[in-house]
Design a protein around this nucleic acid. Structure first.
Lengths: 99, 99
DNA sequence: AAGGTATATCGACTTTTCCCGATATGCCTA
DNA sequence: TAGGCATATCGGGAAAAGTCGATATACCTT
């Protein structure tokens, strides 16, 4: 992953919010409860909370995934997203030793 | 400092390079030796190493300063820039607890 | 005071990002 | 297999960032 792309992914208020919300899915996405949180939170839930359009949120999630900050699981017609803590570990490492 | 602005400042290859070079000014800016490194490295040295124009580098340094990642000292007609480690500490904190 | 040097700011152009609506894809169910 | 959802992708208009050359500012020297 390119460092610049990683920081670009973080350079947007909505994307930062999404990452933060996904730290506590139970708290921030209560409507997801009936489907469980094991796979993450589905796009529609995230979209509602952001107030952005579906296409924008889908694209933002792709951006975060390309940056390695989230990972996705497709289950049926839903795509669940959750944080990818390995990506955050890499981010920390970049900041500690490469910047 | 706004988080988004902080990450935007980091979303550019040249600015990342500058920050990295400033970790070891003696190694990366040997021509600065005759003026010392106590106040940092002056804009002209940084400009030469980047290969960008003077105006671009001056603006980039302002961007980094607004983000809190470098600090400047004006001495005569020179402006010396150096890393601001407090800014990096804040960056770490943001990543640890706010993202 | 005049000229020279280092840096900052301005104006402009190009490229990228933001965010949308429309459409396509994939999957599920009747 | 048709229709209905959930998500992804496409195309585009507006705003922001990247980068330059030209000009302004500040300071230093003579």
């Amino acid at each position: 992953m390119d460092q610049v792309e990683l920081f670009k992914a973080l350079s947007n208020k909505s994307r930062l919010q999404i990452l933060n919300w996904l730290k506590e899915p139970e708290t921030n996405f209560p409507d997801q409860a009936e489907y469980g949180y094991a796979n993450g939170v589905c796009v529609g839930q995230i979209q509602m909370k952001t107030g952005l359009t579906q296409s924008t949120v889908s694209e933002y999630l792709s951006t975060l995934q390309r940056a390695g900050l989230v990972k996705s699981n497709r289950v049926g017609q839903w795509t669940y997203y959750q944080r990818n803590e390995e990506g955050f570990a890499l981010l920390n490492q970049i900041i500690q030793s490469e910047i």
